[in-house]
Write a protein that binds this DNA or RNA. Structure first.
Lengths: 235, 235
DNA sequence: CGGTATCCCCCGCGATACTG
DNA sequence: CAGTATCGCGGGGGATACCG
């Protein structure tokens, strides 16, 4: 394990957090990810050996706790030490949102990831009491994927196979256009108005849909910047 | 350059900040470091090629700005984008101070670094109008180094060679004991009382000396934890 | 599903030498 | 002083196979 050999809290933190993938593993843990294959699914590109190494390392420095559920599965959960890394992760995210994020590139256009992000940022208090099934038809790099987001207060879920329930609302979009709305580079209203995203279904549900979406916590920061550059361009 | 290929502000920030040494280079820039060899001196262990690479990379993402002073030297300064990384650096430092820092190891006992840290955390408003020269005699790993800290409002400096001015106060300590005071693992008063640090000179100056020292901004966090563990031990 | 062990490759990095 | 260029190596990490 690499050491800076400096008696400095920043250096000490950097020794732990600086390994590739580590901060994203912590981000996943913050959002409730807790199984090995769940981390592996949510972090496209990480190898199993690196994931294994990082989880062990984070356990060894008391950021994650590993608990055996049964002989087959374990659970990784944040310790109090790990929970306080929220401040670091959100500081990094805030900075990235404010200064770095631009439009998504084709390589970033991963439908699984954006649906995961959307599904775990729901406005729980606004969700319907009665189940609403929203079908997402996403296109990226000439491929198509369909997801079903089952929305119900306290019992929402994301499905990659048809869940059997009747679909109430259908959304169609390029992955990148949905990503831009999610991160605040454009608004839902604008995207629907200009046709980059289409939404079909009973009018009442279509109107309520955006109220169910929380989108990214960084969206306001990204949106604010979009406002700035528009002002810069126009005046 | 490595990419996570995730459309996520945390991942974007991690791509830029995650390289080894980068966050410490930014820490140095925050504290006013601006020349190549100054970075190199302040970051023992970094190679010139890595430093060169990181400075270029940080310039390319608009975190640092490089300006040629003359044909021989350049200056690296933080851009507004880079300045906002203070939040990230201090979040990491706060977490490290709260949860990670323990006592300094022998490898961390570097006299240059602790004197650098001390010299750039002075309580400017409290400094004397008339020059006071404080000599530090530091011991680590059976080696000795002497430094002279020249204290004067608006004109303090750290010297590795005898500056010529008369020494007013003499301090002697192991590097690690001074580091512990600096980071809040012990207090100046305790260290002097138990003899791990000695200070000699006119009583008035000896009494005023600790008021001139700001110590680390993370010292309160570290000290708070020391209090917790004492309470845990005692009851 | 939930990982670990092994192999092997590549590139990140240190060392050194060089230039303005 | 303030870097850049080149080279060679070691280990980080990807791929794969394997275990429980």
């Amino acid at each position: 394990m690499f050491k800076y050999n400096q008696y400095c809290p920043v250096a000490k933190a950097a020794e732990i957090l600086g390994d590739r993938w580590t901060i994203l593993i912590i981000r996943e843990a913050i959002f409730g990810c807790c199984h090995f294959n769940e981390f592996h699914r949510n972090l496209p590109g990480i190898s199993r050996s690196v994931l294994s190494d990082r989880l062990q390392r984070l356990e060894s420095v008391d950021v994650l706790e590993r608990q055996a559920i049964d002989s087959r599965r374990s659970e990784y959960t944040l310790t109090p030490v790990g929970h306080e890394l929220k401040a670091v992760v959100f500081a990094m995210g805030g900075w990235g949102a404010r200064w770095i994020v631009t439009d998504p590139t084709p390589k970033e256009a991963d439908p699984d990831t954006i649906m995961l992000f959307i599904a775990r940022h729901l406005r729980e208090s606004e969700l319907p009491e009665k189940r609403v099934v929203v079908e997402f038809n996403l296109r990226a790099n000439r491929r198509r994927r369909t997801y079903w987001l089952v929305l119900m207060k306290g019992a929402s879920s994301l499905c990659r196979q048809y869940p059997g329930y009747e679909t109430n609302v259908s959304i169609a979009s390029k992955v990148t256009d949905l990503q831009k709305v999610y991160l605040g580079r454009s608004t839902w209203a604008d995207a629907v108005r200009n046709g980059s995203i289409t939404i079909d279904g009973p009018k009442a549900l279509v109107r309520r849909f955006p109220k169910w979406m929380l989108w990214s916590r960084f969206a306001p920061v990204v949106a604010e910047r979009a406002g700035e550059s528009k002002r810069n361009v126009s005046g």
